[in-house]
Write a protein that binds this DNA or RNA. Structure first.
Lengths: 338, 338
DNA sequence: TTGAAAGCGCTAACAT
DNA sequence: ATGTTAGCGCTTTCAA
């Protein structure tokens, strides 16, 4: 069952004018009689006329919709970023189309292709954890699709990015742990293919080096939670915690990982801060209410979304191809309880 | 900067055939030479041809995209429902366009209108807390836009719905509280305009009546969190808790309300279960890790999404107008800790 | 088996 | 100031 709204042609017929006149009146063009315009506007209003964006899109090659691809909406961080994007985009008359990659590269490629096949004007994306190459995005970008990355960016990709200073914050929190006397800091993080993973690792290592602690690669655990069962992660964590000498702190990346680890620790019988200290990335405010409290790194999600949206719209609306790209680096907040 | 993909016309020119032939070949029509077809398919494949859905939409009055409107994505329940919708819809070749109403009727009307103006084939919606009338949805529905409600439904609206048995579960948990010796049960819930609010209230009252406890309307608090500051809610809660005789239990509706109350209680110095018992709707798994534990009502979000999607696609793909509508009622899970 | 042409709803260049 | 026409990419008669 199709559904159909009133068209410009319907108005034209009803009022005995041509459809171009109607089109012009609706666009507030100046080359239309005041009387006619009033008549048309009134009729349109009354009959609840809405221009068909599909047709408009065909014409302009612009759909006023923007694709947003995130790993998963269940991760509150992404939901918050989307609110930021929406805020900016909404005022400018664009609409967002949200898609999830579920951390799967294949799914990401499919959804991006689908979106791109001429139904979006631009794309804001945070890549999936397991993505290794970005040919699909590069191809589309080369064909003229504006793209802005946030949080997880594709390397060697000439376009705008909005990120946080991962290296710096990783350095800071690692050093904070060291100051508290922790020396065996377990770093639980995403796939090593991810930009954020690498940047955070650098900061982590720097802090160790600065404080004369040898880097032990056994203390870095890449958690592929997107494709793993909780049980497997739990088992891995157990093994890690049984390492000699035992880890005395955890620094975890990402909302999902942080909460996952948090719940596993409890089950496995390790308690914070007695057995270990715990610092993790998380934008879930609930975690502040948790007992035991843990130190949290909170990303300025809303601002990141707004920034990404601004940059994308700039790209879309600029007449000539952009040559110089911006990398906006924001600072996260470290929420230390107690 | 517009971006353009290869079109059917490009293929036609390159191969020296007409665009209708290309169109047919691409659709695996039988009225096309085997040779020609092969040539065309190969060329299309090689050049990464993707049909322009905008153009196709214009033609068919079908866009293969489905609008999904939820109050807010930050609420995990809705993110979970969307995953369910996506799962079903994806296989059938549809795409979802997600929008948020932010619990504001005005925003809901705008976004629905926007979506509806011929760029979606159907709509799945859970209405915003403060919505009082549904004329905008009714009008669109009358014009032929298929709509399916989930969770929060519009009353007197002839269409498919997917809900949980609100009355029953409210009855059950209220009775559980009574069994534990609680008699002054504070029911904190959404706007009274919402279907779920009314249904849950009925169950709550029934349990009281059944157990010979007089209903005290001061114990029902409609929390308009969408438009309120946290401080105001906190103040209200404080006042409620100072009521004589003091409430000895709380039964709260909805993820946002439950977590909000949870955090306020802590701040206000009331502890569970010493001062009061606490049962709340929540689909946030983190709440299971909270200390103190509270009893939780968990909705089958994923299933609700799947069911809603199935129903909508059925509506979209049926040739004749549907007359008989289904109300699917699922059962939530009560997670009692300790 | 294939091509030509019309039309989906809209805009924009060109006439009048 | 208004109408006519072409065209956006695609599908679908209708002819050949």
């Amino acid at each position: 069952m199709k559904f159909s709204s009133i068209t410009i042609m319907d108005i034209a017929k009803a009022l005995g004018v041509s459809k171009s006149t109607v089109s012009r009146a609706l666009q507030n063009s100046h080359e239309v009689g005041a009387e006619t315009r009033k008549k048309i506007l009134a009729y349109a209003q009354q009959h609840n006329y809405e221009p068909n964006p599909v047709a408009k899109g065909l014409q302009h090659k612009q759909t006023f919709s923007i694709g947003v691809v995130v790993p998963e909406l269940k991760n509150n961080f992404f939901a918050q970023v989307i609110e930021g994007i929406d805020e900016v985009v909404y005022q400018k008359g664009y609409q967002i189309i949200i898609s999830q990659s579920y951390e799967k590269p294949q799914r990401e490629i499919e959804t991006v292709r689908h979106l791109a096949s001429r139904s979006i004007d631009g794309l804001i994306i945070s890549v999936s954890a397991e993505s290794k190459e970005y040919d699909h995005l590069k191809a589309l970008n080369k064909m003229g699709l504006p793209i802005v990355f946030f949080d997880r960016v594709a390397e060697n990709f000439q376009t705008h990015q909005v990120v946080i200073n991962n290296q710096k914050v990783a350095y800071t929190v690692t050093e904070m742990l060291i100051r508290k006397g922790r020396r065996r800091i377990l770093h639980i993080t995403h796939s090593s293919d991810l930009s954020i993973t690498r940047e955070r690792l650098v900061g982590y290592k720097q802090a160790l080096a600065k404080n004369g602690i040898a880097f032990d690669e056994r203390l870095v655990y890449n958690c592929h939670y997107g494709t793993m069962q909780v049980e497997a992660i739990e088992a891995d964590l157990m093994k890690l915690m049984q390492m000699k000498p035992r880890p005395d702190a955890i620094f975890s990346s990402g909302d999902r990982i942080t909460t996952l680890i948090y719940s596993c620790l409890e089950k496995l019988g390790f308690s914070v801060p007695k057995h270990l200290a715990f610092v993790g990335f998380s934008n879930n405010t609930m975690i502040d209410l948790m007992n035991p409290h843990i130190m949290v790194i909170r990303q300025p999600a809303h601002e990141m979304g707004k920034a990404a949206a601004e940059l994308l719209i700039q790209l879309i609306e600029s007449r000539k191809p952009t040559k110089v790209f911006e990398r906006q680096v924001l600072d996260p907040l470290i929420v230390a309880h107690e």
